[in-house]
Simulated assay, not measured.
Amino acid sequence: MPREHEFDLPVRYYETDGQGVVHHSNYLRYMELARIELLNATGYDYAKIEEAGILLVVAKATVRYKSPARYGDVLRIWLRTERAFGARIDHTYVIKVGERIVAEAETTIACIDREGRVQRLPRELEIDE
């Protein structure tokens, strides 16, 4: 699995609050989309991973908001897999508008089965350095 991926995403009107600023909750959605985009870029289909009984769930998320993004902005979302080994995946994110950093974040993803029991990541998803 590649370690990094980035893509552009325009801010949609419904993602903003009454002041026209992206609502803070949307950054978690952007990060989820980034993880799916990373899998897609490598030829993995998350739906097929789930069909195999492997669930990747957010165990921890930290977001630091640096400056506002607004309707009409184009976000550049960068994701890096720092570690993917055992039963967890650690990611870092930087979200920018142009050169301006809008948010920085980290997540820890846990690998579980349908009953919620921790299980080892599939070997093809592992990165250990």
Rank of each mutant, 00 (worst) to 15 (best):
E115I: 08
R123W: 04
G43P: 00
T42W: 14
D17V: 02
R88H: 10
I101T: 15
I49L: 15
K66W: 02
I49F: 04
R117H: 15
V94M: 13
L121E: 04
R117L: 13
R120A: 14
K66T: 12
L125H: 01
M1K: 00
T81H: 01
E126D: 02
V57C: 02
V63P: 00
E51Q: 15
K48W: 03
S25V: 07
L79F: 07
T81F: 02
V102N: 03
V22C: 05
V74W: 04
A87S: 15
I36L: 15
R35Q: 13
I89Y: 04
L56I: 10
K66R: 14
R114T: 13
Q19T: 11
Y71G: 04
A47G: 13
R80K: 12
V21C: 02
M31C: 14
H91M: 08
V74R: 08
I95Q: 02
T42N: 14
T92A: 13
T62I: 11
A84E: 04
S25N: 08
E37L: 02
E104F: 07
D8W: 02
R114I: 08
A105I: 10
E124S: 13
R88P: 00
S67A: 12
A34L: 06
H23L: 06
P2G: 11
Y27E: 03
R80I: 08
D113M: 08
K48M: 10
I54L: 11
R35E: 15
E6H: 12
E32L: 08
W78T: 09
T107Y: 09
L28F: 07
L33A: 11
T16F: 06
D73E: 07
A41G: 11
Y14V: 05
R120G: 05
G18P: 00
Y65F: 14
V118G: 07
G72E: 12
V118E: 11
I95L: 14
H91S: 07
A47P: 03
V102W: 00
I54C: 10
A41C: 00
D90L: 09
A69R: 01
I109E: 05
